[in-house]
Amino acid sequence: MSKIAARDRLIFALDVPSAAEADRLLDRLQGHISFVKIGLELYTAAGPDMIKRVVGRGMRVFLDLKFLDIEETVRRATARVAAMGVDFLTIHANRKALTAAVQGREGSSLKLLAVTVLTNFDSQDLRDMGIQRSVQDLVAARALLASEVGCDGVVASGEEPAAIRQKVGPRFVIVTPGVRPAGKGVDDHARATTPTQTIAAGADYLVIGRPIRDAADPVATVTTIVSEMQAAFDARPI
């Protein structure tokens, strides 16, 4: 049986437009979640202070800002993120940006996750960008790049962990957004999967936002999701 505690592997995507709304949700979920994703919307509204408030609650922070810029900018920005006590940070899977982020987090416990292919992209989106590879092949190649330059893991959909594991092995962290409980809509995710499917495929952390945020009873929803996740982790070979 798995020794993984599912509650620690659920990352709640706190995608709300204000600090006040974030605090209201966190008040309701205090004691039921331990890991929070702060993305572009909330970070734009509330900035680093929101990170301090989440850390002050005893929760971990996944800062999903998808850095991509010249090396000096990425290096310095990553150093600032590390100093704020963030646990996970996303960087687009560009060799120069990833290398700069690895340099910027030196001496800290910050884990760097390369963004492979956004979960709302499909093969047609890649062709529109001039990329002729399949989504799965591109994700696997970018995961290998991230591993080679010293990143800790990747962000990828629930359809790709098996291909990633073939390239980078079992210890590389896979964080999967676009996870939807069975019977829920996929929203704007082109490659959505259920918690059970995602964990069985090999993902380590699941990012779930709207199904919890928009639920009539967010606590009950979290409880149901964590229960499903725990069963899936327990059923997965160690």
Rank of each mutant, 00 (worst) to 15 (best):
V168S: 01
Q103C: 03
E72N: 15
R9D: 00
A192S: 12
D137A: 15
I212T: 01
A182Q: 13
A146M: 12
S34D: 12
V219L: 09
R9I: 02
D234C: 02
A45R: 11
P17E: 01
R142F: 14
A79Y: 03
D234V: 09
A100H: 08
V36T: 08
S123N: 14
V55A: 07
T193P: 02
R236E: 08
S34A: 12
A100L: 08
G169P: 13
I51D: 00
P218K: 08
V168N: 02
L112Q: 04
G58N: 02
S227R: 15
I208H: 00
I199A: 02
N94D: 15
V115S: 06
E72I: 14
G183R: 13
T78N: 00
D23E: 15
R213I: 11
A143Y: 05
G202C: 13
G202T: 13
L63R: 08
E159A: 03
G107A: 07
P211W: 03
D217H: 12
M84D: 09
K111G: 03
T73V: 15
N120Q: 12
I33V: 15
N120E: 09
F35A: 00
L65K: 03
A101C: 06
R191S: 03
T90E: 01
F121H: 14
A141P: 02
M229C: 10
Y205L: 13
A231H: 14
V74L: 02
S147I: 01
K66H: 07
G85P: 09
I225W: 04
V16I: 11
G39D: 09
I131W: 01
N94I: 11
E160W: 07
P170M: 03
D128G: 15
V186D: 01
A19P: 10
T99N: 03
M59S: 05
V226Y: 01
T196Y: 00
D15P: 11
S134V: 11
L89Q: 11
M229A: 09
V55E: 02
R210V: 05
P181A: 04
V86G: 04
D125V: 13
L25A: 01
T193S: 07
V102F: 06
L112G: 00
G130N: 12
L65Q: 03
I164P: 11
A192V: 11
A83F: 00
L113Q: 07
S34T: 14
L14W: 01
Q132W: 02
A215K: 04
S34L: 06
L144I: 00
D23W: 01
H32M: 04
I70K: 12
Q124R: 13
K3P: 00
S109R: 14
R127G: 05
A97G: 08
I131F: 01
D69R: 10
G178L: 08
I199F: 01
A83G: 12
L29C: 09
S227E: 15
I38H: 00
I91M: 00
A6N: 03
P211F: 04
P211L: 03
T44R: 13
K66R: 05
D122K: 13
S34G: 14
E228M: 08
V186A: 02
D152M: 09
